[in-house]
Nucleic acid binder design. Structure first.
Length: 685
DNA sequence: ATAGGGTTAG
């Protein structure tokens, strides 16, 4: 049950998420998605007998399928059976096996296949040899890789490329340069480009630049572009610009590369200026250039430039191209123009997962929850597309709606599709469960996180705090620190809220002070407001007032409201007057300012003053904001507002409420006061 | 050789 000023949106709560028919999916899937339980073992020999020409083809395909799924043990078992049946393993299968062994860094299996290759395959092609070489490189086994490379019967420029770029990727620049020096540079420009691409240290970059010059590989658009990008990677934008300016032939890739360089150096204005130059020089722009410049506009929040660029895109007729349309729609999302984003989205002829995640996250970020869920439903009906980004956004929407039913469905769906993003998705799930009243499930999700980061820890700490489990929240905060994870400003909101709920005034003050001294985090006004709330709730109204007036921020509505709330709970008219006066000065339309003060005067029997307040409120024609609460039962949302008697079971509900209320009587008057304040029994106006 | 998406609070 939650309480929000806006009515809950719950478009999916009583419906199922559309899940595409699994069987029909499988028919259209490519072979590598066929699950391994569809075994061809039993039928394989008969298939082979029926079609002698295709002997072994089905088996090899199955072998490839198992391998591509990473089921290497099953693949090896199947390989044994193929041997028993006398079926030859073809070249494609070998290549695939080496590729997967490399990807999975399974050196022992890779070596076995290598031995097999040598034993069974006469005169393998250069292509196969390169796949063996790549496997050794990817497994990080450079001794074997080098041995193979030196002895390789069919060595081509791709072999040089594989080993040299692998050396470079692993930081083995000495070895990379060693091989480079014995290679024919003119025949292997690609190798140079790949090596240049891997360099992220300026000294090394300069060295290779001089090698390039010495070997007369420049001027060359390809090489020089790589060099310019390399300087950008080494955070030496001057170097990039120098190479760029020295180039006589620049192509669109060169220009775009420098634009990206400016972006990475957070010089977005310069990037945009470069784009303008590109247009002036009549460079034929491609989708990469548009994509990059649109991201620049997003960063700059430059709606006008973006719209002009949109115009060019339409003129060139590429707004339906997914690689331009997606950054375009995301640009509109970042500018908060969701209608424009939606328009751009609809123009894209083949939206991909990035497109969908961009529009869905847009709706989620701007609180368009209904549209967000609607898009998600459309996606599930229209295409077999999903990714962890999309689910993360949906989890967030479920949190906002506190819709446990939908949240659990989507969670299950995400598990089936392996689409829960580490940390991002997991943290969103923690919040989703905790805000839906399932702290235990939130904890389960948190406990399953491999290495929780600041955000994940913060999510569970805030969850505990939200549920009033202050000591657990503070315990987790300690544990977070002992795990060496640094808290941030949001973490302290959670910690301070926890203190607030259990009246830990002294501890809260210590946490607040430790922010700067121990963690180097500057407290924001939100942190001070938490502290004011803590003092106020605990009845330390003088301390609270002192903090409001002397904190390093101008008090805002929330600061005074906390103080006024405390004055009401602790019946302090004097400070209450100060608080309400300031509150109403900042926001004369804030009803809480009037109501709390009215209640305070009324409680004290100061009817005249109370009437004054009420008069002022009437003069401004203010009505108390109507809050609503809701709960979902069997997928149906039951919504309640103050004094509401529309529900078919009104009588039962009110009698239960009466019962609950009388059992609360022994509590302090705050409990009742809050009920009154909500207007459930004595409507204020 | 160049491009596009997500998380924690109130």
């Amino acid at each position: 049950m939650g309480s929000l000023p806006t009515p809950p949106l719950n478009p999916l709560s009583s419906q199922e998420i559309p899940i595409k028919n699994k069987i029909s999916d499988i028919k259209t899937l490519s072979f590598n998605k066929i699950p391994s339980w569809i075994s061809l073992n039993n039928s394989s020999s008969s298939v082979a007998k029926n079609n002698q020409k295709q002997k072994g083809q089905v088996e090899n395909l199955h072998l490839v399928s198992l391998t591509k799924q990473g089921k290497l043990n099953e693949a090896f078992e199947f390989l044994k059976q193929m041997d028993i049946e006398g079926i030859t393993v073809n070249t494609q299968s070998y290549e695939c096996l080496f590729e997967t062994c490399g990807n999975m860094k399974s050196l022992s299996k890779g070596k076995k296949i290598h031995k097999r290759l040598v034993k069974f395959v006469k005169n393998p092609s250069g292509f196969v040899w390169n796949s063996v070489l790549k496997m050794y490189c990817e497994c990080g086994c450079f001794l074997d890789a080098r041995k193979l490379f030196d002895e390789m019967p069919k060595r081509n420029s791709f072999s040089w490329y594989i080993i040299i770029s692998s050396y470079a990727q692993n930081g083995l620049f000495r070895e990379a340069f060693g091989l480079l020096s014995v290679m024919d540079p003119m025949e292997n420009k690609l190798v140079y480009a790949s090596l240049i691409q891997e360099i992220s240290r300026l000294e090394l970059g300069k060295q290779i630049h001089s090698v390039v010059i010495k070997n007369r590989l420049t001027p060359d658009a390809y090489i020089d572009t790589a060099l310019a990008n390399m300087y950008a990677t080494c955070e030496c934008l001057d170097g990039s610009v120098a190479v760029f300016d020295g180039m006589s032939e620049k192509n669109v890739v060169t220009w775009t590369g420098l634009m990206v360089g400016y972006t990475q150096a957070e010089q977005h204005k310069e990037a945009l200026a470069l784009f303008v130059r590109m247009m002036e020089e009549n460079i034929q722009l491609d989708e990469y250039a548009y994509s990059t410049v649109l991201k620049v506009c997003s960063f700059l929040n430059d709606y006008d430039s973006g719209r002009q660029i949109h115009g060019c895109i339409v003129k060139y007729g590429i707004d339906s191209d997914v690689s331009v349309g997606t950054p375009l729609l995301d640009f509109y999302v970042k500018c908060g123009k969701l209608d424009d984003a939606c328009f751009a989205f609809k123009r894209i002829s083949h939206p991909n997962d990035v497109t969908w995640s961009s529009i869905i996250s847009g709706y989620s970020q701007y609180g368009k929850f209904e549209e967000c869920i609607e898009s998600f439903k459309n996606l599930r009906c229209e295409a077999d597309i999903s990714n962890p980004f999309i689910y993360t956004s949906i989890f967030k929407v479920c949190s906002a709606l506190a819709d446990l039913n939908l949240g659990m469905q989507v969670h299950a769906d995400a598990i089936k599709r392996c689409s829960i993003s580490e940390l991002y998705g997991e943290s969103a799930l923690v919040t989703m469960y905790s805000r839906s009243g399932r702290l235990g499930d939130a904890r389960n999700v948190f406990d399953s996180v491999d290495e929780p980061d600041t955000v994940a820890w913060t999510a569970i700490i805030c969850g505990c705090s939200y549920h009033g489990h202050a000591s657990e929240a503070l315990y987790l905060f300690g544990k977070m620190r002992s795990c060496g994870v640094r808290p941030n400003s949001v973490t302290f909101i959670g910690v301070l809220t926890a203190c607030s709920h259990s009246g830990l005034v002294f501890e809260a003050r210590q946490y607040l002070d430790s922010m700067r001294s121990e963690f180097g985090i500057d407290a924001t006004i939100d942190h001070y407001n938490c502290m004011i709330d803590i003092y106020s709730r605990a009845g330390n109204l003088e301390d609270a007032l002192e903090l409001v007036t002397n904190m390093p921020f101008e008090p805002n509505v929330a600061s005074w409201k906390s103080l006024l709330g405390g004055c009401w709970s602790h019946s302090n008219v004097e400070i209450g007057k100060i608080a309400s006066r300031n509150l109403l000065q900042l926001d004369p339309d804030d009803t809480a300012g009037y109501i709390l003060m009215f209640n305070l005067y009324a409680w004290k029997g100061k009817w005249e003053e109370a009437a004054q307040i009420r008069k002022k409120m009437n003069e401004r024609n203010l009505k108390k904001d109507v809050s609503c609460s809701w709960l979902t039962i069997k997928g149906k949302v039951h919504r309640f507002t103050v004094g509401d008697r529309h529900h078919p079971q009104t009588e039962e509900i009110y009698s239960k409420l009466e019962q609950l209320n009388s059992s609360c009587l022994h509590h302090n008057r705050n409990t009742l006061a809050h009920l009154n304040y909500d207007g459930s029994y004595i409507p204020f106006i």
